[in-house]
Design a protein around this nucleic acid. Structure first.
Lengths: 211, 211
DNA sequence: CTTCCTTGTTCTTTATTTGTTCTCGTGCTA
DNA sequence: TAGCACGAGAACAAATAAAGAACAAGGAAG
C-alpha cells in the first residue's frame, strides 16, 4: 500500500507531520523550500506530487496554501495515542464469517458508547436484531470479551465458522442464540459450539446514507 | 478547522480574535486598515466578506462598527483542537420544550455520523420514533437547519413552545408531523405553527446504561 | 428636517505571490 | 552507458492582494 518513498519525499512528509500544528495555516511552497533548504519551488513540487500520489497529503489544484495531510495520513500516526477512536474492522452478517475490511479505519467514538476494555466496531448486515433497534447498515461497538451474562447481546462464532450478533442464554447443556426478530427462531447449540467474541456496548446509525 | 482562509483573511480574523476585548466598540474598516497596514477600505472589505461567508464574523448590512465574531467562531476557537466533537445540548421529549442541560458537554463523534454543516446532539425521551429504531435514551445528532425535505426526520418547534422529533411532510396549507409508532397519530398543523430547528443525521445508543 | 461628513459597499485596474510545468545539469548505481 | 533521485532555474497561469474611484446609507450637527 505504501510504496516506498524516496529519502527526500520521506523527509518532506515528516516535516509536514511534525509541523502541522505549528503553522497557523498550511505553508506555501516557498516557505517549505526555506525549511527544507531548497532554492527552487519546482524541485519541492516534485516531492509534493509524489506525496499526493501516495495519498498522504492533498493539495487542491492551484489553491494557495492548500497543502494538507490526508485523513489517511492522520490515521497512520494518530490512532495509536488517540484513545477516543476505535478501529472499524469488518462486517457482521448472521450466518457468515465476519468479513474483514481491507483497510482498517478508525472512528471517533464518544466515551458513553464504549467501555474501559478494548473495543472494536462492526457494521451490521441483516435484520436479525431489528426489534432491538439495530438495523441493517448500523455500526455496533463491541467490547472484546470471551464470556457474557445471560441476556447480553454478543458476537458469537458458531462452529468456528459463522459469526452472528444475537442475545445469548447459556445453560449447562445448551446455549441459545436469540434474534430480536419475531420472524426468526432462536437457535440451540451445545455450549462448545459457541465461542463468544465480544459483547455489544453501543450502536450508531447514519441517516445520510453514504456509507 | 477545515475551512480554507487565505493568508490575509486568516490574518484579519486572528487580529479580530485577539483584539475583541480591546476595542470599546468594534472597529471601523478604516481603523482596521490602519492596524493591518492597508491603505484602502475596499481591499479590507474583500477579506471581511470572505470571513462572513465562512460564518466566522457577522456584520449587519451597512451598520457602522457592526463587525462581531459569530458564536460559531467562538465555539471554533474553544474546540479547534478536536474538530470531531459535537456539543450535547439537551433532552428532547415530544410535547415539551427542549430541556437544556446545565453544562454543555462535548462528545466525540465519528465523521460518518455528522455532516459538514454545524451539528449538535440531543438525548431522546419517549417512544415516538421507536419503529425507526430510535429508542428512549438514545442520542441523536441533529444538523442545524431551518428547512427540510418531506420524509426527513426533524426537530420541530410547535407554536414556539413544544419541541418534538418526527417525520415531516409539508404541503401548501398543512404540515404533518408523523411519529414512527403505530400507537400514535400523525399531527396536523398550519405551516406557520411549525418551525424546523434541525434535521436528524445520526443516532447512537449505549448498552451499558449509566447515562 | 436638512446638510455634511463618515462609513460600508461595489467595481475596475494593477501588482504580487504562488502553484505548476519544463528543461537542463549533477551525481550515484546497476 | 542507461536509469534514477535530486536540485536549480526559467516561464507561465491562476490565485490573491492592493489601490483607488464612485456611490449609498448612517449618523451627527445645526
Amino acid at each position: 500500500m505504501i510504496k516506498s518513498l524516496t529519502r527526500k519525499q520521506q523527509e518532506v512528509f515528516d516535516f509536514l507531520l511534525q509541523n502541522q500544528d505549528k503553522f497557523p495555516h498550511p505553508p506555501t511552497l516557498e516557505e517549505l523550500c526555506a525549511c527544507m533548504g531548497l532554492k527552487s519551488r519546482g524541485s519541492l513540487h516534485n516531492h509534493i506530487k509524489a506525496l499526493i500520489n501516495e495519498n498522504l497529503i492533498e493539495a487542491p489544484e492551484r489553491k494557495q496554501r492548500g497543502i494538507r495531510l490526508t485523513n489517511y495520513a492522520k490515521e497512520m500516526i494518530n490512532h495509536s495515542d488517540d484513545q477516543s477512536s476505535l478501529p472499524f474492522v469488518g462486517i457482521i452478517a448472521a450466518g457468515k464469517p465476519i468479513e474483514a475490511v481491507e483497510n482498517i479505519t478508525y472512528m471517533a467514538i464518544p466515551e458513553q458508547l464504549k467501555t474501559q476494555k478494548p473495543c472494536y466496531i462492526l457494521k451490521v448486515k441483516g435484520d436479525s436484531m431489528i426489534e432491538q433497534g439495530i438495523y441493517d447498515g448500523d455500526w455496533v461497538i463491541i467490547e472484546q470479551r470471551s464470556y457474557a451474562r445471560n441476556g447480553e447481546i454478543v458476537v458469537a462464532l458458531i462452529n468456528k465458522a459463522e459469526a452472528t450478533l444475537k442475545f445469548i442464554e447459556q445453560y449447562p447443556h445448551e446455549t441459545l442464540l436469540i434474534p430480536a426478530n419475531s420472524a426468526m427462531e432462536a437457535m440451540h447449540y451445545n455450549p462448545e459450539q459457541v465461542e463468544i467474541q465480544g459483547v455489544l456496548v453501543g450502536q450508531m446509525r447514519s441517516y445520510t446514507k453514504n456509507h
